[in-house]
């Protein structure tokens, strides 16, 4: 009986794989992404994590195919979600080691988006499942929700502007789970001067977001590997 069930599942997945390979919307998205071999983007990054007080900072984002990505704050320290690079659209789609399953249409910010679930076929990949919400009209991904093996779930929402033809967003909001932060008073030497409000806030909020608003892209001008 068990063997039979397994056979049914495998057969189903193989069918789905066939579906994935021929999913036209994903193909259109991939085709658009493939227009970009590399880019250097400038933008402003905002870090919103309950236990972090950081100001807006100018950043440069470097990308090179297939999935090299680096966010550098201009002359400063930058904070990025751990493992976040592995869940960008390029990383998800470029290796093509997934099964794509269409899972209905949803309205998001007034747009009717096709939800497609991706299930990786390579066990070595860090992510377990990802859902992409794609506008069938312009083949742009507006939202992704990815569950990873080690770093929890990531939600990325995107807005598009003048670089939409390349599938590059004008704004990207990266949502991720945060863990507790606490350093013993004996190390920080902060006795009796805790900020109770900040403490409460840190405990209540377990989500963090990093928001990058892009002001400019320099596309396909070549980026050295040393940047990554």
């Amino acid at each position: 009986m068990k063997k039979l069930s397994l056979l049914v599942i495998v057969t189903y997945l193989m069918q789905v794989a066939v579906i994935a390979q021929s999913n036209p919307l994903i193909e259109r998205v991939t085709k658009k992404l493939n227009l970009v071999n590399d880019y250097v983007a400038t933008g402003v990054m905002k870090t919103d994590v309950a236990f972090i007080k950081a100001s807006l900072g100018k950043v440069k984002v470097y990308f090179k195919k297939p999935n090299l990505l680096k966010v550098k704050k201009e002359g400063g320290i930058s904070l990025l979600p751990k493992g976040g690079v592995t869940v960008t659209i390029n990383s998800l789609l470029n290796n093509k080691q997934y099964i794509a399953i269409e899972s209905g249409v949803q309205i998001f910010k007034g747009k009717s988006l096709q939800a497609i679930k991706l299930i990786p076929t390579d066990e070595k990949l860090d992510w377990v499942i990802s859902t992409l919400w794609i506008d069938p009209v312009d083949a742009l991904v507006y939202k992704t929700f990815t569950t990873t093996k080690e770093n929890g779930t990531y939600e990325i929402t995107m807005e598009y502007g003048q670089y939409a033809n390349y599938g590059l967003p004008s704004k990207l909001i990266f949502g991720f789970n945060t863990k507790d932060y606490k350093l013993p008073n004996g190390i920080t030497l902060e006795f009796g001067d805790e900020d109770p409000a900040a403490k409460r806030k840190a405990l209540k909020q377990k989500k963090g977001t990093i928001e990058i608003t892009y002001t400019n892209y320099v596309i396909n001008q070549g980026v050295s590997n040393s940047m990554f």
Binding site: I52, A54, G57, G76, L183, A198, A202
Partner: peptide, 12 residues
């Protein structure tokens, strides 16, 4: 700056 309950990132 890593304080007891939160982190402060102050620009250079």
């Amino acid at each position: 700056l890593m304080k007891s309950n939160y982190v402060v990132l102050i620009q250079e």
